[in-house]
Design a protein around this nucleic acid. Sequence first.
DNA 1: GCTTGATGTGGTAGCGCTACCATGATGAGG
DNA 2: CCTCATCATGGTAGCGCTACCACATCAAGC
Lengths: 374, 374
Amino acid sequence: MGFAMDVRDPDKKATRKRGSRRGNSAPTIGDVAREAGCSPMTVSRVINGEGNVREETREQVLAAVKKLKYSPNRAARSLAGGEQLRIALMFDNPSASYLSEFLMGALEEAARNDIHLEVQSCEDAVQARPLVRKLAEGGIRGFILPPPLCDDQSLLDLVSELDAIAIAVGPGKATGTHGAVMIDDFQAAYDMTKHIIDLGHKRIGFIIGNPEQVASGRRLNGYRAAIEDAGLEPLDELIVQGRFTYRSGMAGAEKLLSLDPRPTAIFASNDDMAAATVAVCHRNHLDVPNDITVCGFDDTAMASTIWPELTTIRQPIREMTAWAVTAIARITRARRSGERLKVDQTHLPYTLVRRESDAAPSLVRSSSNGAKPK
Amino acid sequence: MGFAMDVRDPDKKATRKRGSRRGNSAPTIGDVAREAGCSPMTVSRVINGEGNVREETREQVLAAVKKLKYSPNRAARSLAGGEQLRIALMFDNPSASYLSEFLMGALEEAARNDIHLEVQSCEDAVQARPLVRKLAEGGIRGFILPPPLCDDQSLLDLVSELDAIAIAVGPGKATGTHGAVMIDDFQAAYDMTKHIIDLGHKRIGFIIGNPEQVASGRRLNGYRAAIEDAGLEPLDELIVQGRFTYRSGMAGAEKLLSLDPRPTAIFASNDDMAAATVAVCHRNHLDVPNDITVCGFDDTAMASTIWPELTTIRQPIREMTAWAVTAIARITRARRSGERLKVDQTHLPYTLVRRESDAAPSLVRSSSNGAKPK
DNA sequence: GCTTGATGTGGTAGCGCTACCATGATGAGG
DNA sequence: CCTCATCATGGTAGCGCTACCACATCAAGC
């Protein structure tokens, strides 16, 4: 026995010294155990807040932890602890340029918490269903769903049914059966509309988003409320249907510009449609913003690429996705230890980003060189 | 003996079955080894791109990986492998809409290999220098540099000097002192130009990219070579300078459209400028593609957002970034074990994506309804 | 007294992977 | 022919931690 140890020890030391496996720093659970005069197992128990440890022992361990500045090794923990938490991030419009922000938030947060994140793209909500089922059966515990997927109630129900967790990122409305992070679409649209009104505009056109996404309706309502609160006449002719696509934005803008008198400002429900509106304005030889103000929503890359750059509403997409990831982690942990806490929902703050596409209306139609007020 | 086995075996199976440690899914390196008919070690070698594996074996392993959809367990990897590799992804034009693809590739691959990736934005190459120094001193071992950062030779030299690894993603030209993944910009521009020529165009305008990026010159040369090879007259008036921005694209397009006779096609060095060109054409009441063909380069989100959608060259940005990440990982590993293998460079295949912005030239100027040939 | 059952604690065996060394197979040089 | 280097591969022993069982201890019950 003694011999065996003698042989083993130097060997081990040599390995250690070279530091081929581990630099030299980072105390391990074993170091703590030695310091506290107990076994690694007991240390593990204390650290994980399990019961069945004498108060005295616990204190010794905690003192040792503090003294050695021990912090558990994440990799080892998740390796030993059985399965790693796996969550899927699904999206069905890969063209969305806010995807990069979306990914930054999710992947960063996932890495921080040692969560495996799978990025899945799919055609639409219908096609997503079998995919979700497969993933859930394959061990995925949570799903992050951006719009428009998160507006499909039956998809959300399917996730609950499969005993997984769905978090909607930026849905128009939360239904209470699942978690959600969003901005207040209503208030944001209200603010933007009020901003345009404050600039002096009275005829403000609005292009609605995809009717299948609840957010579209909320943005429309925000616009309407601001118009009414300002005492302006709410005219149906100023509101046209779009579908969030560039092309639908072109059609909507053409319709609005053919009105007589034409609106002096157009608020499109997203940036792609706003960009399309700018294009149509240019085709009609209208200068933006001197002849007409155009505003968007979302602050995607498109908004700051085109000329003039769009005044728009910025969603804190990164923070929203990060929140979604931690929410899933929290809920799963709770579930593992039996308790079934209810999923929560939250609103994060948005910002109105003022760029170059808005200005006060030119009073005289022909004088199109009115300097934009800063 | 037989008894002992009888006792032990079911026990083990039971443990497995309950899946207390491992769910049941996730194939391990051992499963792959069994499938490929070799040892786990060999699989490990293949996965980490180490040398000393017979080509035949490598292929078998790769096939097994694919078949089983194996993906290495990050926790185990970093637990066994010592310290975590840290690399930085720097970029200086956050507006680039290909950023999302870029990030997808990098972050996904980084997560897969349990590499800590820091995303850093900076103003320009000059400003990047102190930042690189600080990061390298802080333990960053590799830098991923998209254009235009990767075209700054002194920045690349700085990285080598600091004993870190630089991989250029999509530079115009590789200098041999650093790693690089790219497409053949010359050949791609040549192919696109030839495509336009084959459509029947003879006066083809070209908008050059940012002169500070070497890729711009390569694309220009590709255009020139195709023009000459087709026996068309190379006219300087058809080539205008741009800077890869939407706005510079507008200026360039305006200049080209003011020529008499105007070109029947315009090939812009990137999608943003091509989109701007389409906008300018529309402003001049020219239909795309019936009155004029417009082609882009890069296949960013912009290309498929606007109407008409752009015919363009797709770079496999995601794959390129992923390659960059694994290259850094491979080289670092090699360095750790002493050997100093030279950094390598590779070309990845591009594709010409045909959409709706190109057509044969309309022979009679007024008849603008020429059907687009399929 | 000895079975039960709770309560602390330690031992053992991995989690999936890689560093390191040992091996077998080849070919070059003596 | 045998050595010695060079490859291609396998075996073994951990990385730091936790699940699981075994054990020891002490109280209460038949």
